[in-house]
Write a protein that binds this DNA or RNA. Structure first.
Lengths: 234, 234
DNA sequence: ACAAATATTATGACTAGACATAATACGGTC
DNA sequence: GACCGTATTATGTCTAGTCATAATATTTGT
């Protein structure tokens, strides 16, 4: 099967195979650490490393004194990659362009998706693939958090990829929904009003402070999200 | 801030804060393990545990001889929880019911979303919340993999939750798209034809063999997906 | 000057222990 | 038999070290 691998990986995979094959069912107790130590002839730290990994992956639950048990699956948990739009289009071999429609600056207003007070940069634009409209983007950037954004020319670079390079390693929350295109969106994207669109909203913050909010809307027939290789958890 | 925590967690969080705050930027070398050992006055295994976790989270890259470096973010990677529909509705405090529309059995046909040959169970139904239609489901189940499914009464329990309890710890691939409701779907869900719907497709397999395929469709105004707390990676 | 051989160094995996902690099982008391 | 304190036990975190491995620096040979 697989080639050279470490002992803790082998232990992990042996246990995982027993769980995924159904040989060990949810609720079953798996062997105690000291039993695995005896079986593999290794130190307890090595067994523990394997079990810690399985526990973090949600496959087992460890209980002091009682032992470790195969977890009960509850939700399907998937890792969803939300790539930069420019790179998605480039990967398909199409030319990419960001068309800046509007750019403004204003104070925080009630009902804004960004809750932090202070000055904000507002950006609206359309992503193009191979010359055709691909998706619409509405964005707010907190100027308190990213003052340099004031001096950036977003006709040359899309705000998303600029932010990725200049405000790295932030955190985010995503919301995915299906919405009909309103009249304005339909005109901008060259589609019929009411067309089903995939809408992705993302709030990004850095150390608990809001950096940017973006709402991207794509016609349903031009874009979909794929969440690959999905273990269950918890 | 936080209360009692382990030393490796503290080291991990200290480094993570430096990265997320932007103090250490992508490409920067973080302190060597032996420097962190001196700083925290602990064993190298403890520092290594923290760095291993950061590396698996995609925040740093470790290179032998060279040291460890802050990774360059590329895509937004989010953990998406796709819960069982029944529990979603129950969590909102509404009554849940699965209405079985059709149930059949047939051989594999060309173009089926499940590629494995053999007999398949076909199921169609509607999920109801508080007496109102909530979403539509079309499903195929491989009878070679789950022969017991033949004897289950899916009017009592939705196939999704039954499978979760009887074929645990499988793997899956998801696809999310926005589609307009066709005439039949519109009638079943009590919505206007063309209404924007969120469509979730899921292929599930166990140890490399296909178990089930499902396509769930929800009117856009009744359901959306939220991907929480999203670290970037790779 | 350039390439090959060698030394150095940081990470990676591991061992054989120690002590802490939480949950269970056991025993004795009322 | 119900209740409470104590002993036991499996996990959880950690130490102080070893040996291996991969990549960089340095030296050596031509």
């Amino acid at each position: 099967m697989s080639v050279a691998q470490t002992l803790d990986q082998r232990i992990r995979e042996d246990i995982e195979r027993n769980i995924r094959s159904g040989a060990w069912r949810p609720g079953d107790r798996i062997p105690f650490e000291h039993e695995l130590v005896a079986e593999y002839g290794c130190a307890r730290a090595t067994v523990s490393k394997a079990l810690t990994a399985l526990s973090r992956a949600g496959l087992i639950e460890r209980r002091r004194k009682a032992g470790s048990f195969v977890a009960h699956p509850h939700v399907q948990s998937a890792v969803l990659d939300v790539p930069d739009i420019g790179s998605v289009i480039a990967a398909r071999g199409d030319a990419y362009r960001f068309e800046l429609l509007k750019r403004g600056e204003r104070k925080h207003a009630a009902g804004d998706p960004l809750e932090a007070a202070g000055a904000m940069l507002t950006i609206e634009g359309v992503h193009h693939a191979a010359g055709e409209p691909f998706g619409h983007e509405q964005r707010l950037i907190s100027l308190a958090m990213v003052p340099q954004a004031r001096d950036v020319d977003f006709t040359a670079e899309a705000p998303g990829s600029w932010l990725l390079g200049h405000v790295p390693w932030s955190e985010a929350r995503h919301r995915i929904a299906a919405v009909p295109a309103d009249a304005r969106l339909a005109r901008l994207l060259g589609i019929a009003p009411g067309t089903a669109c995939l809408q992705l909203e993302r709030w990004t913050w850095q150390l608990g402070k809001e950096v940017t909010w973006v709402r991207q809307t794509f016609p349903g027939d031009r874009y979909d999200l794929v969440a690959q290789f999905t273990p269950q958890s918890r």
